[in-house]
Design a protein around this nucleic acid. Structure first.
Length: 477
RNA sequence: GGCCCCAUCGUCUAACGGCUAGGACGGUAGAUUUUCACUCUGCAAAUCGGGGUUCGAUUCCCCGUGGGGCUACCA
């Protein structure tokens, strides 16, 4: 038999909301660690808070984890040897442990009133009922007996952490009743029963680790290795929360971020490889990852870097995949594309877009409801004059009129139009700016040939004519 | 308040105690370009402060300062 137990890690989200980006990162680090060591990654849904837990959140969480591309071996969706994987289905397990703890005197039933708000004295009382004598009519809790002492453990990321039990008031509550264990007890029991070897979680649990170790000792469990990761911060350097920005992972999918980009970005938050590399596939991350290289300080979740990484991955997509990605956005906006014009147009934003926000900003000209509303002067290039522009627009209209529909590809259009401009010495800027602007009415956009190709002959001529008319009517000098 | 954790460019980060503190994003200047973007070339930008230890400290130790987390009969 193998003497060293294989690595088993877990992520334990509570279905009281969508998957938080911070939780997603923790999940990723767990997954990477498990895969790196050929271990198992377990998902356990902590739905014991009956008030706030919702089934649809559990589904959203699983969907988000799947979207990110994480792979797990055991979970509520696929079962496993150490199930069930919903905490609410494990209460009998918890109860068993609880009873044993009380019977052995490691924990006791306590009828004392709840702690006052500012109270921080070490808890003392004479309560000592055994389970058989519990007076159900009276409110009670179950507390763990805690000998006043220094407790320390070695955190993989932080080194030695040492806390005195007095700092949290000694005997702490582990259950509201025999049927209602609290988080601390449930986590410890579940982790032990699921043979979790490494607990990798957020730094906000650092203090809890002490309580958890105390419970483990009382239960006679082996202590897992702990690794408390730095928190994800908002721009104000506070724990990333809903109020400071979007924290729902799936919202980023809906904003046009690719899962591989998000995965890559998340990995770089609090972790860095030995070399300067920043672009990593999932497999490459597994290869390069190590907990020892995880940062101790918190990291700000900032979308600018995510944008650049997303742009990189978008540029790696095939044309088909890129179109599919972009059209998903328009579909979500309820924009139909009967003519196929939008589909063609979308390609002009390749290597330019960072997310759907860019697509939506730059592709106005390709929308079915586009109208040529713009100030006439904008048609005139900065180094040109209105009469020149009018003249050139007329010539361009005439030139394009003479082209065949099948010549409307980017390369042919570019070749023909550029050659035409140069041989007639019309001036590239003087001609191309009004062309592009007449077609888009946008200050910034893709090049005129790409746009002409996407719009096709009829639409191009229509828009050029409209610009000519506008300019004539305006009668600028 | 108490307990704990942390500290390198604006941001994410690199640097066996030893090159001019490196890279990326962002910013900025320029080249290219009809515009924006892409690409290319430059530039600015950091070791929180004070003490030690050491030939030598971003790195180790102490103090201070700053930031953060936790302080539930939530998870």
């Amino acid at each position: 038999m193998n003497s060293t137990p294989s690595v088993r890690v877990r992520i334990a989200p509570s279905p009281t909301g969508n998957l938080h980006v911070g939780t997603a990162r923790t999940a990723l680090f767990n997954e990477l660690y498990a895969r790196k060591h050929g271990g198992s990654f377990v998902i356990r849904i902590e739905d014991t808070d009956k008030e706030r837990s919702r089934k649809e959140y559990e589904e959203a969480i699983m969907e988000a984890l799947t979207w990110l591309g994480l792979v797990w071996q055991e979970g509520p969706d696929k079962g496993g040897e150490y199930g069930p994987y919903r905490q609410s289905e494990r209460t009998s397990l918890h109860k068993e442990v609880l009873l044993k703890l009380v019977q052995s005197g490691k924990a006791y039933v306590c009828y004392c009133a709840p702690k006052e708000k500012g109270e921080r004295e070490t808890h003392t009382c004479d309560c000592s009922a055994t389970p058989g004598e519990i007076n159900a009519a009276k409110r009670y809790v179950i507390r763990l007996h805690v000998e006043p002492q220094e407790v320390s453990f070695t955190d993989i990321i932080r080194g030695e952490v040492r806390v005195h039990t007095d700092s949290f008031g000694g005997d702490f509550v582990i259950a509201r009743s025999v049927d209602d264990p609290l988080f601390h007890l449930a986590v410890v029991v579940d982790d032990a029963l699921m043979k979790i070897t490494h607990v990798i979680r957020g730094e906000d649990h650092l203090h809890n680790a002490i309580k958890h170790i105390l419970i483990q000792r009382a239960c006679g469990y082996e202590q897992p290795q702990y690794a408390h990761m730095p928190l994800l911060l908002d721009e104000q350097r506070r724990k990333l929360s809903k109020r400071a920005g979007e924290t729902n992972l799936l919202a980023y999918r809906d904003m046009g971020y690719l899962p591989q980009a998000m995965l890559n970005y998340l990995a770089l938050l609090g972790w860095a490889p030995k070399d300067n590399r920043e672009i990593f596939s999932h497999e490459e991350l597994v290869e390069a990852f190590s907990l020892e290289r995880v940062q101790k300080g918190g990291a700000i979740f900032s979308v600018t870097k995510l944008n650049s990484i997303n742009r990189h991955y978008l540029s790696q997509l095939s044309d088909e995949a890129f179109v599919e990605w972009a059209m998903k956005y328009f579909a979500s906006q309820g924009t139909s594309d009967d003519t196929g014009q939008l589909q063609k147009a979308v390609l002009t934003e390749r290597e330019r877009a960072s997310s759907y926000a860019d697509i939506s900003e730059s592709l106005g000209w390709a929308l079915p409801d586009w109208e040529p509303v713009y100030p006439v002067e904008s048609l005139v290039w900065k180094k040109s004059t209105p009469p020149q522009t009018l003249e050139l627009l007329r010539k361009t209209h005439e030139m394009i009129q003479g082209m065949d529909e099948e010549d409307f590809s980017v390369s042919v259009l570019q070749e023909r139009i550029m050659e035409w401009i140069d041989t007639n010495e019309l001036g590239r800027g003087d001609t191309l700016w009004p062309l592009r602007f007449a077609l888009t009415s946008q200050q910034y956009s893709a090049g005129p040939f790409e746009i002409t190709a996407a719009l096709g002959k009829n639409e191009t001529l229509k828009r050029l004519q409209s610009a000519i008319t506008k300019l004539e009517d305006a009668n600028l000098s």
